Simulated scan of single mutants.
Amino acid sequence: MAQERIIILAVIASSLISVACAVPGIATFSTPTLPSACYAFQDPGTLFAAVNPDLYNNGTACGRRYRIRCTGPANQNVPRPCRNGEVIVTIIDLCIACQPDQFDLSAEAFSRIADPNAARIRIEYNE
């Protein structure tokens, strides 16, 4: 019984740490272009993202996975864009035009967490 409580507390604590470490940002989406900066002409699958130059960090972000959750609108055209849940994406490219803490998600990744009509949303992310 004591071990079960310890395990449950450990799971709850790790969840809280994950939430506490989330960084606010912005997400947009686009269609993939090949070659990608990380993987040239390899098929990236459907759940991927390009990141701003700071996060890309000269390619060190390639292959990293980020958990992303929609937190609200970033424009007025869709006042409630968020869908429940989160998505995990793999970094495959550099988004030169992206601002700090901005992700350019694949259309599939974006549509899992938000209404694509929003085009731009507020997010929280962590690695």
Rank of each mutant, 00 (worst) to 15 (best):
M1H: 13
A2F: 10
E4P: 00
I6H: 08
I7F: 11
I8N: 12
L9Q: 15
L9T: 09
L9V: 03
L9E: 15
S14G: 08
S14R: 07
S15T: 09
L16M: 15
I17K: 12
I17D: 09
S18L: 11
A22H: 04
V23H: 10
V23L: 09
F29T: 00
F29E: 01
F29W: 15
S30A: 14
T31N: 14
T33V: 14
L34Y: 15
P35G: 15
P35V: 07
C38R: 03
C38L: 02
Y39D: 08
A40G: 14
D43H: 04
T46C: 03
L47N: 11
A49T: 11
A49L: 02
A50L: 06
V51Y: 04
N52I: 01
N52P: 02
D54V: 09
N57Q: 12
N58M: 02
T60C: 00
A61N: 10
A61V: 05
A61K: 07
Y66V: 04
I68N: 08
I68D: 10
R69W: 08
C70A: 08
C70K: 07
T71F: 05
G72N: 10
P73T: 10
P73G: 05
P73L: 03
A74E: 07
A74G: 08
N75T: 11
P79M: 05
P79H: 05
R80N: 15
R80I: 07
R80Y: 13
P81M: 10
R83Q: 14
N84E: 14
I88N: 02
I88F: 01
T90N: 06
I92N: 02
D93K: 02
D93Q: 01
A97Q: 13
Q99A: 12
Q102W: 00
D104C: 00
D104R: 05
L105D: 06
A109Y: 10
S111F: 08
R112G: 10
R112S: 12
I113V: 07
A114D: 07
A114Y: 05
D115P: 08
A119T: 12
R120S: 02
R120L: 06
I121R: 09
R122W: 02
R122Y: 01
E127W: 09
E127I: 03
E127T: 11
